[in-house]
Amino acid sequence: ESETFDVELTKNVQGLGITIAGYIGDKKLEPSGIFVKSITKSSAVEHDGRIQIGDQIIAVDGTNLQGFTNQQAVEVLRHTGQTVLLTLMRRG
C-alpha cells in the first residue's frame, strides 16, 4: 500500500535540504526510482516536516522522474526556482 502526496516548499539558505539516491531494484520485488536519502538540519524540508527519508520523489515541478538517473534527478532539482513542488510516494 502506498500513498502519493504533494509538498510545496520554499527554499531557504540551505536550499531544499535533501540528498537523493537513485535505486534500480528488481522490478517485481523492489521499486526503482529516486529516493530521499537524507535531510539536512534546519532545511526547508526539515522545517516542513512532511517528507521522510525513504520517500520516493515521483516528480519535481511536474517533471516526472520515472527512468531518470541519480545525476539527471540532481540536475532537475538544481534548476528549480525558489518555490518547488515535489510529488512523493510513501510505501506503507
Rank of each mutant, 00 (worst) to 15 (best):
V7Y: 06
V36T: 00
K37I: 04
T69H: 04
I34D: 00
K37D: 12
G22A: 11
N64K: 11
T80D: 02
E8V: 12
L88G: 04
G33D: 13
R91Q: 14
N64M: 11
Q52A: 08
T80H: 01
L16I: 09
D26M: 10
R50N: 07
G49R: 07
L65Q: 01
N12S: 15
S38I: 00
A73D: 01
V74M: 12
I57M: 00
L77H: 02
T10S: 08
R78P: 00
V74S: 13
I20F: 09
F5R: 01
I53Q: 06
Q66E: 14
F35W: 06
N70T: 15
L88E: 00
A73T: 05
V13T: 15
L88R: 01
R50D: 04
G15S: 08
E8M: 13
Q66M: 11
V74C: 13
E46N: 08
K41R: 10
V84E: 04
E8S: 12
T4M: 10
S38M: 05
D61R: 01
E3Y: 15
I51Y: 02
L77F: 08
S38P: 00
A73R: 04
T69K: 04
Q52P: 01
M89K: 14
K37Q: 13
V60D: 01
K11T: 07
S2K: 14
E46M: 08
Q66L: 11
Q82N: 12
D48T: 06
N64G: 08
L9R: 01
L9K: 01
L77W: 05
K28H: 09
I53A: 10
L29C: 12
E3L: 14
I58P: 01
Q66D: 13
L88A: 04
L16G: 04
R78V: 04
E46R: 08
S38H: 11
E3H: 14
Q82C: 07
L86M: 09
S42N: 15
R50C: 06
F68R: 09
I58F: 02
A73H: 01
G54R: 02
H47W: 07
R90P: 04
Q72V: 04
L29Y: 13
T69A: 06
G81V: 01
L86H: 02
Q56S: 03
A21W: 08
H79N: 08
L86T: 03
G62K: 11
L77V: 06
G92N: 15
G15P: 07
G67A: 09
A21P: 03
G49S: 06
K37P: 02
L29V: 12
G15Q: 08
